[in-house]
Amino acid sequence: MDINTIIDISLLTLLAITAVILLRLHNLLAVVLLSGIYSLLTAGLFVSLDAVDVAFTEAAVGAGLTTVLLLGAIAVTGREQSVTRHSRILPIAVTTITAAALIYGTLDMPKFADPNAPIHTHVAPRYIEKSGEEIGIPNIVTSVLASYRGYDTLGEVTVVFTAAIGVMLLLSGSRKSKSQNVKKNVDKNE
């Protein structure tokens, strides 16, 4: 077994353990910190798949900033998850059926790293062979993201912009006018 397989298996095992612990926790502070660890492990997996740009984003956003912003959100709302009392049968059934459908869907997918998979035969060869002449920069990811798919990236930036406007609108109001529930949680923690 080569070193890559060992790294992949250990990262995936840690990822699964983190996910299970995340599900069982009710303390939101611990949940946020563990989500950061989950993101960091995912970033490690992306590195082992040679997707360094994605890994970079995942580490910076998922493990770094999101954790801080979610901690800020917890400071506003409260640390404990409220206990749900209704039956668990329906959620479990919905999750099982969705998971079964998704796994059934993967049966039709091409095998991992199959060179004849549609994604490797459509536009990818053109990007790999021609982006050096057409765009002239070494990082193909940047060529695709900023030039070939520039319109998509404009859309993504617009999404970030819109999200920021939404957050600013939500948080700029007076705190007293918020629902009693939020206020009660904060009082409990102080």
Partner: peptide, 22 residues
């Protein structure tokens, strides 16, 4: 992209911090 993302993240943090201390 860099300017917007940096400004958005800083602004969200400012808003959360201000809201928490209100």
């Amino acid at each position: 992209v860099g300017i917007t993302v940096a400004a958005v993240m800083i602004m969200i943090f400012y808003m959360l911090d201000e809201y928490a201390s209100r």
